[in-house]
């Protein structure tokens, strides 16, 4: 069904766009969530990604829309938004309450945070510790479930390179998980 979406979008953007949101909202939100590690920002980044996509589609000629690979295209948009947000946030001073509340949490790194959580939350924190390309590769391949061809399109590299980014990311993740939790 999603195979026909680019063609339908090229014919009637307004009619088909709701189906694009329905088909890809989970992939886009999951990517934002697992790349940023912050649920409160992930929903904003995901809706902003669909708005950027919508504006772009309004400007694209129908032939271009018809040939789009929608999923890697949408995921590229949301990845850029999350990256830009992280860059902007690193330039902003950390927001700390006047009473100093939130200090401890703000100071500890992802690994310390991971110590306090179990299972899923721990793995989610560890993911944000990976170098950017490896994290992107692991999240898109193993969390979102993207095929290697689409992952290579997002990373802008050959499929073989995409595979090795995933493999290296996984290896690194295994070394980060404490012995007793494995």
């Amino acid at each position: 069904m999603t195979d026909e979406l680019p063609l339908r979008l090229s014919r009637d953007l307004e009619e088909a766009f709701p189906d694009v949101v329905a088909a890809y909202q989970q992939a886009v939100f999951t990517t934002a969530l697992r790349m940023s590690g912050r649920p409160e920002d992930a929903a904003d980044a995901a809706s902003e990604a669909f708005l950027r996509a919508y504006s772009a589609l309004r400007d694209y000629p129908p032939e271009r829309i018809g040939q789009l690979q929608l999923r890697p295209w949408l995921l590229t948009i949301v990845l850029n938004l999350v990256r830009n947000e992280a860059r902007a946030a690193s330039r902003r001073p950390a927001q700390v309450g006047l009473d100093g509340a939130g200090h401890a949490e703000a100071r500890e790194g992802p690994e310390e945070q991971a110590q306090r959580h179990d299972g899923q939350a721990r793995l989610g924190c560890l993911l944000t510790e990976l170098p950017d390309t490896q994290r992107t590769a692991v999240v898109l391949r193993h969390v979102v479930g993207l095929p290697y061809a689409e992952l290579a399109a997002v990373l802008g590299c050959p499929e073989g390179t995409a595979k090795s980014h995933v493999a290296r990311g996984l290896r690194r993740l295994r070394t980060m998980i404490p012995e007793e939790a494995r």
Binding site: V21, Q25, F29, T30, L33, A46
Partner: peptide, 23 residues
């Protein structure tokens, strides 16, 4: 195994997500 744990990290978009996109 770690691949299964990662696959379990998918998350549905929050309720009312479509309304944050549409007017």
């Amino acid at each position: 195994i770690i691949e299964d744990e990662l696959a379990a990290l998918t998350a549905p978009a929050p309720a009312g997500f479509a309304d944050s996109v549409y007017a």
